[in-house]
Structures are given as structure tokens and as C-alpha cells.
Design a protein around this nucleic acid. Structure first.
Lengths: 146, 146
DNA sequence: CATGGATATTTCGTGTTGTCAAGCATTGCG
DNA sequence: CGCAATGCTTGACAACACGAAATATCCATG
């Protein structure tokens, strides 16, 4: 915090590189798990989100960090497969609440189960290590939470 | 290792969730950093790759985990901006080696510098913690390395 | 050395994701 | 009421991803 200039720390670089690899792998695994249910990554993400709780379109967009117009298409495709449905919000007739159907929730559950990427190696770590990892990650995220 | 069945460990779930968040943030930051150079995420990834060392198309595809036909377009766009060039491989006239130009390498360097996401919070960790984080990540990746 | 199978790249067609601008309905405030 | 703000959709467009087919080159085998 003292100096604005940060020398190119080898260790930091190394960790960054590793994170990049982890991110890439995580993505690939997620995409793969989704594909097993004939879903794209984006569709799987939205479905997972809606399986948690019904959500207005606009909020979905916010959580996906994309434009609302984009969500329309994704939900369209999920809806046409019967995994999601649009409901009217009685409190505000402008908003449409997207909600996972019974089948949608089942698919989301299977999807979560199939996401075995980090699961497996994580199991190799001792509880102490896992706790440490969790804390480190939390600190990394805490710094940038808006 | 003993039992095939793994109970839904709360701590593991928590870490997984955190990884999901980290991945999401990493992606968003990367996309943003790329956008500042009028590049898409995919273009930035390929450029970073080629700035390291010239690489045949097919290997780029392998590292990107995508179809070779896809790389053609991405390199096309980078080439049209003068950031990348295609060279013939004297040893095998089938392969085209994509290489970053001088300008491409400069852009890649700037891009790396702008990737301040994990950098910042990582600086808060002690060297011991960073080392631990590195080892944990390596173990996670080591299990699944092909 | 010629034939043919494998490999590297590109092209084409298609679907999904993402953006932005415009449009429509509804809400809520002055 | 009038009117800006809000929520969602539509349309046009670029990028990206896949798969199949085309082309060129390599290499092993006969």
C-alpha cells in the first residue's frame, strides 16, 4: 500500500498464471457438463440461477453482467425446452419473472452433480488446507467487492 | 480414495462457489482489459499466447480448446490489425505459424499490465500465503492434467 | 517413385452469445 | 393528466464456436 509501483513478483506472476489455467479449465468443464444436457454454458448458468429462485429478467442480466436484451434469447431457448417459464409479476406488470420448471430444477441439480472438476482435487486437500484456500479466495474477492 | 461416494461437504461446496465467483470476476476483468485495446477476450487470449512464442494454428486451437477452424477467424482479425502475422513453416509447408508482430507484443505487454484484478488482492497476502495458494492450485490442476 | 492415408489450414453454413438502438407497455411522480 | 423512467422485446450486426467439406502437403508403404 506504501508504493504505487509493484515490481513484477515472480511468485505473484506464477499464481496469476495458475489462476488463468484454473479459470480456463473451470470454463471448459462447465461447458462440457452443460453440453451433456444439450445446453450451452450461458443457458446452464441462467438455469442454475433460476433454479435457486425465480428472478426478473433485468436481475438475471445484472447477475450475468450482460445486456437485458441478451437474456431474452437465452430464456427463450430454455423456455422452448420446458426448463424455464415466464411468469407475470402481480406487483408490476412490466416485469416478467423467469422461473425454473420442475424439469428445469432437476436438470440444474444433475448439472451441479456433474461438475466434478474442482470437486475431485479438492477432496485430496485436508480440511485445514481447504479452509485456508477458502479464506484466501475470500480475501481476494473481498478486496474488490462492489 | 476409499469410498466412491462423496458426501456433499459444506466446506467443499463453499470453495467451489468461491471458485465460480473468482472465475466470473477474472473473466469480466479480462474482457474489460481486452476491450480497452479494442480486442475481444478471445483475441486477447490468442495474442497473449502468440506474444509468448510463435505457434502453429493447430496448437493455438489445442491450447484454446476449440476447433482449428475457429482460430482462423480470430487470427484473421488480429492480422488485419497488424498485431499478428502468419509465417510459413520451412520444415512443413502445410503449417502456418502465427506470430505476434512488434506492435502485437507491445499490446500484449500493456494488456498484461492492465490485468490488475488478482494482482491487487494477491499483494495483500504474505509470501507464505501466496506460496501456499500456489501449491494448492498446482495440486488442483495436477490431478487433472492430461 | 507412385498411391493413398494422415495432417494442417481454410471455407462455408449454422446456431448462440453479445452489443446497441429503437419500440412498446407500464409505472409513478409532478 | 402529462411525461420521464423502467422493464422487456425486437431488429440489425459482429464475434465466436462447431462440424463438414475442400485443398495442399507430408509420409509410409508397396
Amino acid at each position: 500500500m506504501a508504493a504505487g509501483i509493484r515490481p513484477p513478483d515472480t511468485l505473484t506472476r506464477e499464481v496469476l498464471e495458475l489462476f488463468g489455467t484454473v479459470v480456463a479449465r473451470y470454463h471448459a468443464e462447465y461447458e462440457l457438463a452443460a453440453a451433456e444436457h444439450s445446453l450451452t454454458g450461458a443457458q446452464a448458468r441462467v438455469l442454475a440461477l433460476l433454479a435457486r429462485e425465480p428472478t426478473p429478467m433485468r436481475q438475471v442480466a445484472r447477475q450475468l453482467k450482460c445486456e437485458p436484451s441478451n437474456v431474452t434469447g437465452i430464456v427463450d431457448r430454455l423456455e422452448s425446452r420446458g426448463l424455464v417459464e415466464r411468469r407475470a409479476d402481480p406487483a408490476d406488470r412490466r416485469v416478467k419473472v423467469a422461473a425454473a420448471t420442475e424439469e428445469g430444477r432437476a436438470t440444474a441439480a444433475q448439472l451441479r452433480g456433474g461438475l466434478d472438476f474442482a470437486d475431485e482435487p479438492l477432496a485430496e486437500l485436508t480440511p485445514v488446507e481447504r479452509t485456508l484456500l477458502r479464506d484466501l479466495l475470500q480475501r481476494m474477492l473481498g478486496e474488490h467487492t462492489e
